[in-house]
Design a protein around this nucleic acid. Structure first.
Lengths: 189, 189
DNA sequence: CGGAAACATTGCCCCAGGGCAACATTTTCA
DNA sequence: TGAAAATGTTGCCCTGGGGCAATGTTTCCG
């Protein structure tokens, strides 16, 4: 149950068994169905999630009804509606498991409690933020000023499994393309 | 000289005078000219900067020669080529002061030394990362699936001074538009 | 201060990629 | 398992916004 989370922590920091167990004790398991919502637009995000199995997607819908996906958390990764979680304000996005998933969840209060009391956990959180920031920057540089084909090649390069793992429609909403354009271009690769 | 930096720190955390002075003592002043480079593509970023006056721009140039700007640090703000600074790897971007500027710089070693020894400074850094992350997310949601006019309205809404402060060309490279398109649309607002 | 260079504006044309729709395929769940 | 719903594919057409270039304007620095 907690093996993947333990692996995640021990791979990134030096930590004794007692602390590890203490951290894990704050995470509780949660099973979800395909397309189940973890957060609706306008709700304030109360949990951080770790994915044991499945996949969480964060996305929004603009006023013309167009979906934009910003992030996916897969097996062995953390994910939440971070802006809402951090600022404790209503989210401008949805969070859902796009596959039947096994998650571990920790409440916001417990999470920041761990950040404030366990240096290793603070370090992990810092790393998550640093990495999240870097990923976002790469995406901005990687997507702006690129045409459709370059964007597709960019994901294939940087996240090789992505196009195989998620539906065409969802991949298109991540790349900022219409499903038809993505479909057409994939056929030519 | 350090007043703006002191204001920044005291506005965000509770901190005694001695610690404040100790932090400031690690920052040294740096005057730069318009369009002076703080970092070239491929160099590893060794400093974090605080802007007393002027403006720092982070941007990259793709293989077709197209510029994309990702971030601007104005008066009273921190800025650096964060991905390179964090990972200590060659940057995929340039950093330059686009105006004659007065900066305060701190070396990477000193910066992380402060993060590791002064809890208030660690908190400030966490806040910078959180905010940077949130800003990046908003930009992804704000720019993807928006047409040119909506993007312009988005910056006017979220960063009202931006279009007035930077050149048309640089604003266009931030918005992902051609200078001509931006010029045309501004005329119609 | 003045010439040069960079930048901004605007007209004209063109094309990458979106919209829509018809059809094929896959997935879902009763 | 099978009918219905969702998703994927592909053709046709159309448009937002980029490229280029001519002209006007601002900024720079010797």
């Amino acid at each position: 149950m907690y093996q993947l989370l333990r692996d995640y922590l021990t791979a990134r920091t030096t930590i004794d068994e007692a602390t590890l167990a203490f951290i894990c004790s704050h995470f509780s398991p949660l099973k979800t169905k395909r397309n189940q919502f973890l957060l609706q637009y306008g709700q304030t995000c109360q949990h951080y999630y770790f994915v044991n199995k499945g996949c969480i997607r964060m996305y929004t819908i603009n006023k013309e009804g167009l979906e934009t996906s910003r992030f996916f958390a897969f097996e062995g990764g953390f994910g939440t509606a971070l802006p809402s979680f951090i600022e404790h304000t209503p989210a401008f996005e949805y969070m859902q498991t796009i596959e039947k998933s096994d998650l571990l969840q920790i409440s916001r209060a417990d999470f920041y409690q761990l950040v404030d009391t366990i240096p290793q956990f603070a370090f992990i959180y810092r790393q998550i933020l640093e990495l999240g920031f870097i990923t976002a920057q790469k995406r901005i540089y990687g997507f702006q000023g690129f045409d459709a084909l370059e964007k597709i090649q960019w994901v294939i390069q940087h996240q090789p499994d992505f196009l195989l793992r998620v539906s065409n429609k969802i991949a298109a909403s991540y790349l900022g393309l219409s499903p038809s354009t993505l479909s057409r271009l994939k056929a030519k690769l």
